[in-house]
Design a protein around this nucleic acid. Structure first.
Lengths: 152, 152
DNA sequence: GGGAATGTTCAGTTTTGATTGAACGCAGAT
DNA sequence: ATCTGCGTTCAATCAAAACTGAACATTCCC
């Protein structure tokens, strides 16, 4: 017994809201992204407000948030004053790229702390280990990114 | 002109507080972990409260948090009623293992949504792509984990 | 038995962040 | 000129989370 598509859609949108909230995005941003991914077509600003039952102010703020991360893009059409949004071509790439950047930055910061210490300090070795850890994660995610790119 | 070790130490602890806060941990948990990593030796419960200038209640709560994640371990010594904490042997491994589990779970959840849809639905293809995305990330982090393990 | 030290718990406070909704500016349409 | 629809902004509200501090139970020491 397969559920109706609309039900799956609603569940997916709610799920994405929670999943992305756990990764630091505001919940509405997650739901917006879920909706856009599911529908796979541009949706208008007010459509989003209506469908998600949130204020226009929230759409405005969260759209800006997602736009700045490169996860979605804004479209404008001649003769239509509305803004339309859809998932960016390489939306997922962008997320990974940003993640890699964050981890690389952390690695470098930690290495900076390490190198401010004399080499005989045990702490220096430990901080270097931590820096290596973040570098390794960045490397792993980079590989994932390459794998995804060549598949699509 | 190298800063004194104590200064680097304080800065590192503060930095870790912020860095791990950005990844969902409470700030004090991040600072505790930073302190323990820097010092590389067991520190007592009250030492932590004193040094971080936070209440014992906070140490208790955050220590439990870090313990449950396997990031730190508690030591008890004969003839000493205090609890001592230090970073777990495979503290970083644990973090990666948990991350992999989360991403794998997300991938599977999303695939579940996809498979509830008829194959002619475009949404099904898109959700499968998202599931692949999370799977690829989990794979990348798994590789990072293996690389780290064999290095140490 | 007191008394001091230790970790936990929990109610209350503070802080932080998300969300709303009204006010606003702008651009087309009437 | 006025009106309507659109998106932004911002002050106020709300909710969730972290943190504190006092009360408590336990253990050890005198």
């Amino acid at each position: 017994m397969t559920p109706p598509i609309s039900r799956t859609r609603a569940d997916f949108i709610a799920y994405m809201g929670q999943a992305l909230e756990a990764q630091g995005l505001p919940p509405i941003a997650g739901r917006m992204l879920g909706l856009l991914i599911f529908d796979g077509a541009p949706r208008s600003f007010s459509d989003l407000a209506t469908e998600l039952e949130v204020s226009r102010g929230s759409i405005s703020a969260n759209a800006r948030h997602l736009l700045s991360r490169g996860a979605i893009v804004k479209q404008n059409r001649p003769g239509d004053r509305q803004d339309y949004f859809c998932v960016a071509e390489q939306s997922l790439d962008q997320i990974l790229i940003e993640l890699i950047a964050r981890m690389t930055a952390t690695s470098e910061s930690v290495r900076g702390f390490a190198e401010a210490l004399p080499s005989e300090e045990g702490a220096r070795r430990r901080l270097c280990g931590l820096a290596d850890f973040y570098a390794a994660m960045a490397g792993g995610v980079t590989q994932a990114l390459q794998r995804l790119r060549q598949r699509c």
